[in-house]
Nucleic acid binder design. Structure first.
Lengths: 209, 209
DNA sequence: CTCTGTGAATATATTCACAGCA
DNA sequence: TGCTGTGAATATATTCACAGAG
C-alpha cells in the first residue's frame, strides 16, 4: 500500500523541523517561512519545501506556514500520535540508561518489560519497569502485544535475540548493538551504532588534515 | 589539502566492513572476496569495491583480499591508529553511561576529564576520570591539548557549550544533545541524535502500513 | 509584492557490465 | 579462469529558478 518511497534523509529532516517548530511555538511565534526554518536547522529553503511537498501543501503563498498547524501535520506524518508496545532485551549499562530515558514515552514507545539473562538483575526495576528472565520473551511479546524490540545485548547475542523477536511477531527492531542484523523483509530495522559514529568521527578528524 | 570528497555513506560502510573483517580474522579466515564481505554486511559487491577504490587497490584479481591486510588498511584509513584527547561536558545519565563505554578508548578517544555544573557531581569519578567544575573548560582544553569535545548536556545548554569548546580550540565535537549545533567551517561535527532515530522508526512503523 | 510549490537542471550515489590482471 | 577495478549507465537527491496563489 506504499504510495511513494520517502528518502530517509527527508524523514530525518522532518524530525528536525518538528523540533525547531516546537521551539518557535514555545516562543509564541505563529508564522514561519521555509527560509526561516531552513536557516534555523542548517539546510536550504528549497530543501524544506521539497521535503514537505512529499506529504501535501501546508503553507500559504506570500505568507509562510502556521507554526501550530505545520507542527501538527509533522507529528501526524511521523506517527507521533500513535502508541507502540515495546520490549527491551538487555539490562546492561546501555539498556539501563535507555530505560530511564523519557524520550521513548514522549514519542509513544511504551516499554512494557525488560528482559535479561543475568539472574542478579532479574526482579529489580528500572523506573517502573520490572526486569524479567529472558525465557519470557515469547510469552511477554504475545501477552503485551509487543510491536517493537529494543536490542541492547552484546554483539554476539544480537542476531539470536533478533531471530527470536521476529519469530515472536515484533514489527520493528531498534538495534543498539554493534552488529549488522539480518531481518526478513517487512520488518522495520533501525540501527543506532555508536562504534560506527566514532569511526566516522575518527575518519573526519584524520583524513587529509 | 583535501584530494577527494568521500561520501559519508562510504565511510560508514568502511567502518562496518572493518568490523566484519575482524570477525573473519577471529575465525582465522585469511582471504575474502568482495562478494563475501558484501553478503556478510548486506550490501552489493560492486559497492564494496567502489568504496575501497576511493583509497587504493587492496585486492588481487582472481583471488580477493587478504583479511589481515585489508583490515590494516581500513584501520589506517579510518584513523584508528591515532590518539585523540577528549573532554566530556555533562555527567548526567547519558554522559555517565558513555564515560564507562570502552569503545572510546579502543578507537583512540582518550577521555581526559568530565565537566559538569552540578556541584554534587564534581569531585567524584567515572571509572578513572574525575568530574570537575564547568569553569575549568578553557584551562583543561589548553592543559590537555584537547582535540574532541563530547556534549551530553541538555539541549538548552548545548549551543553555549559548543561555542565555548570552539573558542577554546577543539577540532571536533560529538554531539549527543537533541539540538542542531552551529559550528564554524573546519570544525568536525557529528551528531548522535536518539530522538531523530526514534521519530524515523515511528515514521517507518506508521507510514502506509 | 512575497513566499510557496514544483518542473527542470544539476549533483551525487549506486549498480551494471566488462576489460584486464593474477 | 575468477575476481578486482572501473568507466558507463542508471537511479536518487539536491538545488535552481520561476510561475502563480494570496
Amino acid at each position: 500500500m506504499k504510495v511513494f518511497k520517502i528518502p530517509e534523509a527527508t524523514v530525518m529532516r522532518l524530525s528536525i523541523y518538528s523540533r525547531h517548530l516546537k521551539h518557535l511555538q514555545d516562543e509564541s511565534i505563529e508564522t514561519v517561512s521555509s527560509e526561516e526554518i531552513a536557516s534555523g536547522v542548517g539546510v536550504s529553503s528549497a530543501q524544506v519545501r521539497k521535503d514537505l511537498a512529499y506529504f501535501g501543501e501546508f503553507g500559504t503563498r506570500g505568507v509562510g506556514y502556521k507554526v501550530q498547524d505545520l507542527l501538527g501535520h509533522l507529528k501526524k506524518i511521523l506517527g507521533l500520535d500513535k502508541k507502540w508496545n515495546v520490549i527491551m532485551i538487555g539490562a546492561g549499562k546501555l539498556g539501563s540508561a535507555l530505560a530511564l530515558y523519557e524520550g521513548f514515552r514522549e514519542r509513544g514507545f511504551l516499554i512494557r518489560t525488560i528482559l535479561d539473562d543475568d539472574k542478579k538483575k532479574v526482579g529489580s526495576k528500572l523506573k517502573d519497569v520490572l526486569i524479567e528472565p529472558l525465557e519470557l520473551l515469547d510469552t511477554r511479546i504475545k501477552q503485551y502485544n509487543i510491536d517493537v524490540g529494543i536490542i541492547t545485548v552484546p554483539a554476539v547475542a544480537a542476531q539470536d535475540v533478533t531471530d527470536r523477536l521476529v519469530a515472536a511477531g515484533v514489527k520493528a527492531i531498534l538495534n543498539f548493538s554493534p552488529r549488522v542484523l539480518k531481518v526478513p523483509g517487512g520488518i522495520v530495522l533501525r540501527n543506532v551504532d555508536l562504534s560506527v559514529n566514532l569511526e566516522v568521527l575518527s575518519f573526519n578528524l584524520s583524513f587529509n588534515k
